[in-house]
Nucleic acid binder design. Structure first.
Length: 648
RNA sequence: GCCGGCUUAGCUCAGUUGGUAGAGCAGUUGAUUUGUAAUCAUCAGGUCGCGGGUUCGACUCCUGCAGCCGGCACCA
């Protein structure tokens, strides 16, 4: 006999060998019918898997969030069966659940085409209709390898061989006697339980076991949901995201362009650059307030320099290198740190100079692989909001904590919420002793806690010389972006011989903290565009106000309004074209201008403007002075607005 | 870099089985002087991504390259 504790605390006795399904049946027929799996002692289990002694059991139905994971996992299996039925000779590899769906990697000589999707989806529905019982089987490792080799599934055999320790039993999941796959499970009780709310989305190449030295497999991505309504909502969400694409908005709003002759390079147009200046100016003020000193270092430096820093060895392939007529080899700087160390090294530094915070809006060039380029998000010429904090070891925690607070505040001013902070720990291939890593990781952890943040551990993601903290922010539609980083470095000061005179009169190595808050201006503006869907908050908008006249008689007055707005520091444009006001309103609304100030004969006579805010349909008529006050107030960057409200 | 797809006017897209291209919007010019999301007309606009081949003839077929898109790998 075994005792089962239900979620409400009720206890029930069952025969040995009873499964969660028996538990569900004992509660009600309808529950047994709806049951998809069970949570047994907190772990997701197959419904029909015999319980292992006394257990806490919760029945999972379609309404539980865990159900989605089951659906997606089963959708992956059913996809694999469908593909193998339709295209014999295709080998299966792995098919995990991912955010919003699943994928399955196949090995097949002939490439799949998205035209095949309809046929495959039909076959999947057919397999669902067959309602095949899904059976969990425990195999011995050797038998499983022999089995998969026997049916020509060399990838599966290899997975088992490489990953499963010898002697450990492994599980296969079988769709009746028609198909089976190596899988940890759990799964639905039968294929018929998968809701017909899935869709194959895209095709992609993917390296076997994620290694670019291996052959490339064909990956089929799909999405799966509990019901057709959720599926439709998801597809709508994708369409909405597409409308925010910064590449599309960049063209429509005339912010920037890119072209073949400068792959991965941005041509900033007037309006895009206006955003840039607003962002840069804001960050500069925030850094000033935190006692950073801004510098600028050379764009091109001799090869010797990069050899010394170690970048030549490790990243030469990704550097833009030039040979001069006088036989020098130079490189465009891929990063700013070595330059900053040179400034640090000018003259003698005392312990009293530390911490020294050196900032640069540093234009860097990296020859990124062509396939990595993506709009503003991944470019070859970019400007980092870079800074290096030279400090003593005992200052690391305070400086890091202080930085975290600053970065969070800046992100939030841009309307991005800090979702979490990752602590990237020691990678497999690394420099430095375990004691060093223990200490460094603890320092970063303590610093985060000091700033009131509990970091999420990202195992093995650190740089080869030190751990780092990465900021993950969430945008308006819930997407996550890695934005901002702080990285501990003991190596570069050593390589480049940075030193300061300590209290003891002796020379010491400073520690460097590499840090960025936006990452690169290019990418960050890309994120901003997508976050606000092109409708920038007033302080960032390239054009903040358009003054539109109704008839020519108001043209002079319109010009005087623009003059006053500009005198108040507002980015204003005039529109006195001979067009209907409807036309002008539409055009500037499409351009997502925050305010349209309409002036006609009436406004000219009484010295007022009719303000129409973007996103609203009604307008308010204000005396010009009031409108000026209101617009200047609204156009203030958040830091200045805060300072002003403190002052008042 | 790797796999797959795409590339026709500034933009969004048509273009039947191979007979050298069309629409809407934007632009030009003219008329219209207008009260909150598109006034009417007019004209102009293309080496059909680039190169090679097949063909009497190629935007259409084949091939090489490039760029872009979706992923993978990479991201100091």
């Amino acid at each position: 006999m075994l005792e089962v504790t239900l979620p409400d605390g009720a206890k029930k006795e069952f025969e040995d060998g009873a499964s969660a399904l028996d538990v569900a049946e004992s509660i009600s027929k309808s529950l047994a019918k709806k049951a998809l799996a069970a949570k047994v002692n907190g772990e997701l289990w197959d419904l029909t898997r015999p319980l292992d002694g006394n257990s806490d059991v919760a029945i999972i139905t379609e309404r539980d969030p865990e159900a989605l994971e089951l659906f997606r996992h089963d959708a992956a299996h059913i996809l694999a069966q469908a593909v193998q039925e339709l295209y014999p000779g295709t080998q299966v590899t792995i098919g995990p659940v991912i955010e919003d769906g699943f994928y399955y990697d196949f090995a097949r000589d002939k490439p799949f085409s998205t035209d095949d999707f309809e046929k495959i989806e039909k076959k999947m529905e057919e397999i669902i209709d067959r309602d095949l019982p899904i059976e969990r089987q425990v195999w011995k490792k050797e038998d499983a390898i022999a089995h998969f080799k026997g049916i020509g599934e060399k990838y599966k055999a290899q997975i088992i061989d490489d990953i499963i320790p010898p002697g450990e039993p492994i599980t296969l999941y079988a769709h009746s006697n028609q198909w089976s796959d190596l899988c940890r499970g759990p799964h639905l009780p039968s294929t018929g339980k998968l809701p017909k709310a899935f869709k194959l989305m895209k095709l992609a190449g993917a390296y076997w076991r994620g290694d670019s030295n291996n052959e490339m497999l064909q990956r089929v991505y799909g999405t799966a949901w509990a019901n057709p309504k959720d599926l439709k909502a998801y597809l709508t969400r994708l369409e909405e995201a597409e409308k925010r694409d910064h590449r599309k908005l960049g063209r429509e709003l005339d912010l920037f362009h890119m072209q073949e002759e400068g792959k991965g390079m941005v041509f900033w147009h007037k309006k895009g650059l206006a955003i840039w200046h607003a962002v840069e100016g804001y960050v500069r003020r925030r850094l000033d307030a935190e006692d950073y000193e801004e510098v600028r270092t050379p764009q091109v430096l001799d090869r010797k320099f990069w050899e010394q820093s170690g970048h030549w060895d490790k990243y030469r392939e990704n550097m833009f290198i030039a040979e001069t007529a006088e036989d020098e080899t130079l490189s465009l700087k891929p990063m700013n740190c070595p330059g900053h160390v040179q400034i640090f090294k000018q003259g003698q530094k005392s312990y009293r100079d530390l911490p020294l915070r050196m900032a640069e809006f540093g234009a860097c060039h990296r020859y990124e692989p062509s396939g990595a380029l993506h709009g503003l998000m991944r470019v070859r010429a970019f400007t980092q909001d870079d800074a290096h904090i030279f400090c003593r070891e005992d200052q690391i925690e305070d400086e890091t904590a202080r930085f975290i607070t600053l970065a969070k505040s800046i992100h939030s001013d841009f309307g991005l919420e800090t979702h979490h902070i990752n602590l990237a720990t020691r990678p497999d291939v690394r420099a430095g002793s375990d004691e060093f890593w223990d200490k460094a990781e603890t320092q970063m952890m303590n610093a985060a806690r000091k700033a009131g943040v509990e970091p999420v551990i990202a195992e093995g993601d650190g740089a080869f010389y030190a751990p780092k903290l990465d900021f993950i922010v969430k945008d308006a539609i819930g997407r996550e972006w890695t934005c901002g980083t702080i990285q501990l470095d003991y190596v570069l000061p050593d390589r480049l011989n940075a030193e300061y005179i300590g209290e003891d009169g002796a020379k010491h190595r400073p520690v460097m903290l590499h840090r960025a808050i936006l990452g690169s201006l290019e990418r960050f503006i890309g994120i901003l565009i997508e976050n606000c869907a092109g409708a920038f908050p007033m302080w960032l908008a390239p054009t903040q106000v358009v003054v539109a006249s109704i008839t020519e008689t108001a043209a002079d007055y319109a010009q005087s309004v623009v003059d006053k707005l500009e005198a108040a520091g507002i980015r204003a444009e005039i529109d006195v074209r001979n067009e209907k006001i409807n036309y002008k309103v539409r055009e500037h609304s499409v351009q997502k201008i925050p305010y349209i100030a309409v002036v006609g004969q009436k406004e000219a006579e009484e010295g007022s403007v009719a303000l129409r805010q973007f996103g609203t349909k009604n307008q308010i008529v204000l005396p010009l002075e009031d409108a000026l006050a209101r617009l200047s107030e609204e156009a203030l960057p958040p830091d200045i607005a805060r300072a002003k409200s403190l002052h008042n």
